[in-house]
Computed example of a mutant assay.
Amino acid sequence: MRSTNRPLGVGLLAAGPVTQAVHLPTLATLAERLHVTHVMGVDPDVVATVAARVGARHSSTVEELLADKSVDVVAVCSPNSLHAEHVVAALSAGKRGVLCEKPLATSRAEVEQIARAASASGVPLVVGAMHAYDPAWTAAKESWGDLPDRTHLVRSRVYLPPNEEFVDLATDLATGSPPPVNPPTSSEQQPSAVDLLRGCVLGLATHVIPPLRHFMPGRARVVSAELLEPFGYRLVLTGEGDQYGRTAELFALLPGAWEQDWTFEAWAPDTRLRVDYPPPYVLAGSATVTLTDTKGSVCGWQFPSNGYQAEWLHLADVVEGRTELMIDVPAVLDDMLYALDLADDATALLKAAS
């Protein structure tokens, strides 16, 4: 086991809203275990400001951050299209752990690249789907018994105001000069409905995949798909070859005009699980989880800490040899492939309907 004389050094790849509003505030609450030592960013003014807030070094390239010996753990917070490239680089750089924001990848080829790098390096990898590490969720898992085997309906609902509202609550966002705007010269340059739906599934529905797979573990088939404006989706899934006839309804709409409503529910004939998630970005404690049966018995869980804190502490424990990965690398890769399957199914239905 590694000595804990000093906190693990964290290097943050990218200095945007997720780094500033999620990871810096979270890591500030875990200073005895984790400390930001290096921030990489492409905007020199922004990265300098962000790094100065935590007394860290800053640089403009991935190579500089990965060469920094004070960095034990790398957090990949770059744009989605760069996640796989940066994860592979971090896994191959001799670092002790990697946390990647979701989605882990955007294609099967990228999943295969990550799988090879993870196998060769043996470095632990955690994906920042914070709900999978939420303390109330993990506590409920120990008590729900065979509920996943008996579940016949799963429902996920995400209705959120603009992200900027939560970011403003979490931090004073450092921003650079906006890039020049060049309007598209033809309609072909506008994102298609298919591209938008795929982005919705990979960018938002990936939050749902870890809990969904507890209750619909096999291959799921999308039987209905709709793109919602301005950003969202409505999907209906069935378990392929599932003797229990499981169905899942996944709904998301952003930005909403009312208060947040982010829930996950699973029904069996005599039991219902309900998870009410806290607001994203801010440190608002854990989800509230209730388990109710037809006799009126109710169990409930809620904790002061949240999934962001739990995922970081879990990775620190793994790196220091205190525990094994809660969600191992093969399961992480399977979750990503499951999400890609859903995206393919949904976009195929949308194409067929157009």
Rank of each mutant, 00 (worst) to 15 (best):
A84D: 15
S143M: 04
F303N: 03
A205G: 04
L313G: 00
G203S: 04
L66H: 06
D270L: 05
P179M: 14
T323S: 09
V236L: 04
G307A: 05
L82C: 12
V181S: 11
P217Q: 01
G232K: 02
V123T: 13
S92F: 15
T37M: 02
R2T: 08
V88N: 02
C299Y: 07
V88I: 08
D261R: 15
G232I: 04
M216D: 03
G285S: 06
L237V: 03
G199Y: 05
Y133Q: 11
L204S: 06
A75H: 10
G11A: 03
A225G: 09
R272H: 12
T288K: 06
A331C: 05
S3G: 06
R274K: 00
H314Y: 07
V126K: 09
V73K: 03
R108G: 00
V50D: 08
P25G: 05
A120I: 04
G245M: 04
S177Q: 15
L160S: 03
R116F: 00
V236A: 02
N163F: 11
R219W: 08
A56M: 09
N163S: 04
P7N: 04
Q189A: 08
T263H: 11
A118M: 15
D149I: 11
L104T: 03
A84V: 15
T185M: 04
R57C: 10
C200R: 04
M130R: 09
L104N: 02
A205H: 12
S121L: 13
W144Y: 06
S224H: 15
F264W: 11
F215Y: 09
L227E: 01
W262Y: 15
A174I: 05
P280R: 02
R157E: 04
T206E: 12
A105C: 15
T292E: 10
N80A: 03
K69F: 04
E64C: 08
K69M: 07
K141Y: 14
L104C: 03
L202I: 09
A15D: 14
T323Q: 10
P304A: 00
K69L: 11
D335Q: 14
L342K: 06
D317H: 08
I209Q: 08
G203M: 04
A193R: 12
E142G: 10
L153A: 05
E259K: 14
L147K: 13
G55E: 08
L235F: 01
G94I: 14
